[in-house]
Amino acid sequence: MSGEEEGFVIDIEINNELDQKIVDQFALFDELDAKKIDSDNVGTFLRSLGLYVTNADVEEIKEKSFHSQIPNAYHIGLLLPNITECFLKHKFLPKTVEQLFEAFHLLDPDKKGSLDIAYVEDVFKNQGDQFDDKEMAEFMVRAVDHRSQKVNYEYLINALLQNVLDENDLFKLSDKIALEPPQEKVEEIIAETLKDEGEKDEENSLNRNLN
């Protein structure tokens, strides 16, 4: 599988189920089927995979995946190996519910159980990992209790955890793949087994002839 970019070809190497799931998710962001997405969408794409990346993390991955021939976009063929590595090395794991509750207790010293929308927007846009306007808007749709017009813990944590998969968790899939021997090793094991079986049959045949 490959993608052509103005005279040169970028290969898309899909080696396992994890790679395929990442490529399938990328397709949701690649509306023109150009095998690339704009720079501004890389962070949203990474978070949609369940990677809890900061803006600095996003920039690091973009730097590793940069190609001078496509300066304003990022090709899946270049992003894929760097993203797969994140899963296999367990980088950017999601926070647990307990950790999130502990963090938001710090934002709510009076223990009201909810936060003002303007305050949450200020925290996420101007402090720590800074959300851009698009990310903030998408996040607040899920985080706000529209009856009270407040952000309560349950809504907020559900919004933060909405990308964490259960049985389809890509981190779990990466663990499974890491435990599987590479194809050449499988072929070597099969060859050795067949050889051993052949030697046993030859030995049994020789023993029968001697008897």
Rank of each mutant, 00 (worst) to 15 (best):
M1K: 11
M1T: 12
E5K: 11
E5M: 08
F8R: 13
I14L: 11
E17P: 03
L18A: 02
L18S: 01
K21H: 03
K21M: 04
I22F: 09
Q25V: 03
A27N: 10
A27W: 06
E31F: 09
L32N: 12
D33L: 11
K36Y: 11
K36C: 11
D38M: 04
S39R: 11
D40Y: 11
D40A: 12
N41A: 13
Y52L: 02
Y52H: 04
V53K: 01
V53C: 08
N55I: 03
A56L: 10
A56K: 09
E59C: 08
E59K: 13
I61Q: 00
E63T: 14
K64D: 13
K64R: 13
S65G: 10
H67R: 13
I70L: 14
A73N: 03
A73H: 04
Y74A: 04
I76H: 01
G77E: 01
G77T: 06
G77H: 00
P81S: 07
T84G: 11
C86N: 08
C86Y: 10
F87H: 04
P94G: 11
T96R: 04
E98V: 15
E98R: 15
Q99A: 14
A103M: 14
F104H: 12
H105C: 02
H105Q: 15
L107I: 13
D108T: 04
D108A: 06
D108K: 07
P109F: 01
P109A: 02
D110C: 08
K111W: 03
G113F: 07
S114D: 12
L115M: 15
A118Y: 09
Y119H: 02
V120Q: 04
E121S: 14
Q130W: 05
D133A: 14
E135T: 04
M136N: 10
E138H: 10
V141D: 08
R142P: 03
R142W: 10
R142V: 00
A143D: 00
V144L: 03
D145V: 01
H146Q: 10
K150E: 11
V151N: 05
N152P: 06
N152F: 06
Y153S: 02
I157Q: 09
Q162T: 13
N163S: 02
N163Q: 01
L165C: 08
D169R: 01
F171Q: 07
F171S: 06
S174Y: 03
D175C: 01
K176L: 14
K176N: 05
K176E: 14
I177Q: 09
I177L: 12
A178C: 13
L179G: 14
P181K: 05
P182E: 06
E188G: 06
I189Y: 10
I190K: 07
A191C: 08
L194T: 06
L194F: 12
K195E: 09
G198N: 09
E199Y: 04
K200Y: 09
E203G: 04
N204D: 14
N207W: 00
R208L: 06
L210F: 03
